[in-house]
Each structure stands twice: as C-alpha cells, then as structure tokens.
C-alpha cells in the first residue's frame, strides 16, 4: 500500500491508498478523482490520464518511455514533469507521491 495525493488545479486534493502494483491511474479511477480517465486501460493509447509529478518526486518516478513520450508530446499543456499516470506503477518507494491533475485531458 502507498498513499498518493491527487491535487486539482483549484488546489483541492485527496489522499488515496493505492495497492502496490496498481498504477497511479488505477488509484485515481477507483477513488473517483476527477480529471483522470485512463480510457484505454493503460495501453498508452489515449492520453486521458495525463498528470504532473510534484518536483520532489520527478526523479523517483522516472522518465516516460518512448511510446509514452510520443503520446504525451501532443497532450494538452504538457510540461517537463508530465507523465501518463497509467504508466506509473506504485511501489513502496512511491509512498507519499504527489501528482497534479491538469485542467483538461
């Protein structure tokens, strides 16, 4: 189990318990976090689970893979710390992770 904090652009946030092995996207959809859909179920095909990683976590979460980069490049308002949350699997190392949900997917 790891705690992940999802913060919306209006500043509201929610702490969620995510099972080890589940993705940051799974944690969001199972807890009705607005703004994260993950329609393709983690196949890296839809860019509806875009999040920004809190600066302090960027290194631990690591960079996007090639296929993810291709998709991310064209998502709305992409930044240095953008990732597709379906591609981030929760490990014990990520306990306490903070992500920001974009205004638009």
């Amino acid at each position: 189990m790891a705690i992940v904090t999802y913060t919306q652009q209006d500043g509201t946030s929610k702490d969620v318990t995510v099972k080890i092995g589940q993705s940051v996207k799974d944690g969001a959809v199972n807890n009705l976090i607005p703004g994260i859909f993950g329609e393709c179920g983690g196949a890296c095909a839809c860019a509806t689970c875009h999040v920004y990683i809190n600066d302090q976590w960027v290194e631990k979460v690591g960079p996007a893979g090639d296929a993810e980069k291709d998709i991310l490049e064209f998502a709305e308002d992409v930044r240095e710390n953008s990732r597709l949350s379906c591609q981030i699997n929760i490990s014990e190392d990520l306990d306490g992770l903070i992500v920001y949900v974009p205004d638009e997917q």
Binding site: A47, K69, D70, I71, E73, F74, A75
Partner: peptide
C-alpha cells in the same frame, strides 16, 4: 503504426 505522434495530431 508505431507512430504515436501522427495519431495524436490526427485527432485534432
């Protein structure tokens, strides 16, 4: 086919 960029731009 293994071309995510074309796919994403195609949507727009």
């Amino acid at each position: 086919i293994n071309s995510g960029r074309e796919y994403m731009m195609g949507r727009k």
